[in-house]
């Protein structure tokens, strides 16, 4: 794709969304862009609109205002063309289902194949490749009910990768996974980045999880209805986090291993207004201000 270096993997301009009968908008004038090969972590508390934003990017939620382009296409078209892979926050998959990890990835690879046709050799190879990419080949034949949370997560990531997407969306990938598992997730993220051309959108509400994966993130976007920050992890301040999470998160903030301003964060604002004008970049790292 020759235009890949020019066209952002994801471009959102002035995105607003209000659920029917809701008194307040869920997303308000959100603008951001992600370049191909970048890892963007979208961070925010519960109810900040993260999952809604992801649903819109995946083409699963209509009725929004503003512009959303995924690899230059509408979200629905990008999904139909298999350019977007996703791993849901709670997959809803049944542990009791009599399938192995290999079967699960095969489901993703063959979902569009007519029922009477067997998968071609190339499809089987893609399944093995996807399992290899997430280092899950060792336990791919075990029943899914016997796998740990972290192993299941890798299987689900392999299922998303098997369609060879350009954009991979991971919704709360470390929820329900212990500290060691979070470390391994950071390894997985670094491993996925090695492939270069894959753009990754991470959504997290747990700053500790962000801290463990921060080294692999190119940018962090702080979302609470509107975008409060959108830049490299080193640019984030304690005040931004206090505004987004409405809580003094200094101890965790120090765990991010990024330069702190040294000031104590002011009490959280209630108007969700903008701040941090120094991070307003023209492209790629733009921060929405309201």
């Amino acid at each position: 794709m020759s235009g890949a270096s020019v066209e952002p993997a994801l471009r959102i301009r002035g995105l607003s969304f209000t659920y029917p009968r809701a008194a307040q908008s869920t997303l308000e004038s959100v603008s951001l862009s992600v370049q191909p090969g970048e890892v963007l972590a979208i961070v925010g508390p519960n109810g900040a609109g993260k999952t809604t934003l992801l649903r819109i990017v995946q083409g699963l939620q209509e009725g929004y205002r503003g512009e959303v382009r995924v690899l230059g296409l509408s979200p629905g078209e990008a999904r139909r063309r298999g350019l977007v892979g996703s791993v849901a926050q709670r997959s809803g998959a049944m542990l009791a289902y009599p399938v192995s990890g290999h079967d699960v990835v095969m489901m993703g690879a063959t979902v569009g194949l007519p029922g009477w046709r067997s998968p071609a050799a190339g499809v089987r190879e893609r399944v093995i490749d996807a399992l290899e990419r997430v280092d899950a080949l060792r336990y791919a034949d075990a029943p899914i009910g016997t796998l740990s949370g972290g192993q299941l997560q890798r299987i689900m990531v392999a299922r998303a990768l098997v369609i060879e997407p350009k954009l991979l969306i991971l919704d709360e990938p470390t929820v329900g996974i212990d500290a060691a598992g979070q470390e391994r997730f950071a390894d997985l993220l670094a491993r996925l980045k090695e492939h270069g051309n894959l753009t990754i959108l991470l959504v997290m509400h747990d700053l500790r999880a962000v801290a463990s994966g921060a080294a692999s993130c190119d940018r962090i976007a702080c979302l609470r209805r509107s975008l409060h920050f959108h830049d490299t992890p080193s640019g984030i301040t304690a005040q931004v986090l206090a505004d987004v999470f409405e809580h003094d998160l200094s101890p965790i903030f120090r765990g991010l291993h990024i330069e702190a301003s040294g000031e104590q964060p002011r009490p959280p604002r209630t108007d969700q207004g903008s701040h941090d004008a120094g991070h307003d970049h023209a492209d790629g790292g733009s921060c929405a201000h309201h």
Partner: peptide, 13 residues
């Protein structure tokens, strides 16, 4: 796919 993982199936179109 649907009986195994309904939200996942939806995400896969």
């Amino acid at each position: 796919f649907w009986t195994f993982d309904e939200p996942g199936a939806r995400a896969f179109g």
